[in-house]
């Protein structure tokens, strides 16, 4: 769905005081001593942010920081416990159908029918987004060619494609539906360096063409520094800082630091430490 001129002048995404908690508190019971005490997990805590149309905004945070929860709320797949979020002026809870017409999502795990081919998966996507008739095959072929995918992969089962190829098909599928807002949840995680570079080049081309607004969740700070117009740093469900990469570096990693230094200063730890904590 193409963006309109009026949309370019407005905010693509407005988030105000969003909170989301998972799980209910469970207390040990006298009659059921085997029941373990459980604490609910606060995934998002009063998050507010603003995403401008036609820009790439990065959400930086470690695993478990709340990035994917925020993306799922914007994709109408989760409802927030408090606060409100809107996409091109439509509230994600009250008007999910309007929101869905504007968005598409590329997630870290490939959401495909693995036995079906890229073509069959893309045809299904096209049908769900109002097309799929004559000319769809040509559009799909042109898109895959642009992404550097050999055309003979088009009719092979998805499970025979490499992770990088699957991710490219996921991106091509999202382009096929021409979203005004593209939600990219760690699109380069797990990709080999070549595939990662190709995907990043593709995101760059979106920025060049101003074809869509992109919300890019990543924990790759170099990627964020190179690709994003603005970044939002999020940790333990809270927004710690936002601004252009150079603003954040200037404010938190001066005089000659990097975005990684700024991130460390803001969160008090390196991303790798979060990874290590998670593994433990």
């Amino acid at each position: 769905m193409a963006i309109h001129a009026s949309e370019l002048n407005s905010a693509a995404v407005e988030v105000e005081g969003i909170s989301k908690r998972f799980g209910e508190a469970v207390q040990p019971h006298r009659l059921m001593p085997w029941r373990k005490a459980k604490k609910p997990k606060l995934a998002l805590d009063q998050v507010s942010m603003h995403v401008e149309s036609g820009r790439i905004t990065g959400i930086l945070g470690a695993n478990g920081s709340g990035k994917s929860t925020l993306i799922r709320i914007l994709a109408t797949l989760l409802t927030p416990d408090a606060g409100r979020a809107s996409v091109f002026g439509s509230d994600v809870v009250r008007h999910p159908a309007q929101v869905r017409r504007h968005i598409n999502r590329v997630s870290v795990e490939a959401s495909f029918f693995k036995e079906m081919s890229p073509w069959e998966n893309m045809l299904y996507a096209a049908r769900l987004y109002g097309s799929g008739g004559d000319g769809t095959r040509d559009r799909v072929e042109a898109m895959l060619e642009r992404l550097g995918l050999p055309l003979d992969t088009l009719d092979k089962p998805m499970k025979q494609l490499s992770r990088g190829q699957q991710q490219k098909v996921a991106i091509a599928r999202s382009f096929l539906t021409s979203p005004s807002l593209l939600l990219m949840d760690e699109p380069t995680t797990g990709l080999d360096p070549r595939s990662k570079r190709e995907v990043q080049e593709l995101v760059r081309s979106i920025r060049r063409d101003r074809a869509a607004t992109v919300l890019l969740c990543t924990h790759d700070l170099q990627e964020a520094e190179v690709l994003c117009d603005r970044v939002v740093v999020i940790d333990q469900g809270r927004v710690l800082a936002e601004g252009t990469p150079s603003d954040l570096i200037r404010a938190h990693a001066a005089p000659s630091g990097s975005l990684e230094d700024a991130f460390m200063r803001l969160t008090g730890k390196r991303l790798e430490e979060d990874e290590e904590e998670k593994e433990e």
């Binding site: 799922r72 797949l77 869905r100 598409n104 999502r105 959401s111 495909f112 996507a125």
Partner: peptide, 14 residues
């Protein structure tokens, strides 16, 4: 099981 549930539920259809 296929991992496509969110994709289908996010689609702009009734």
């Amino acid at each position: 099981w296929e991992g496509t549930i969110e994709y289908t539920f996010m689609a702009p259809i009734k």
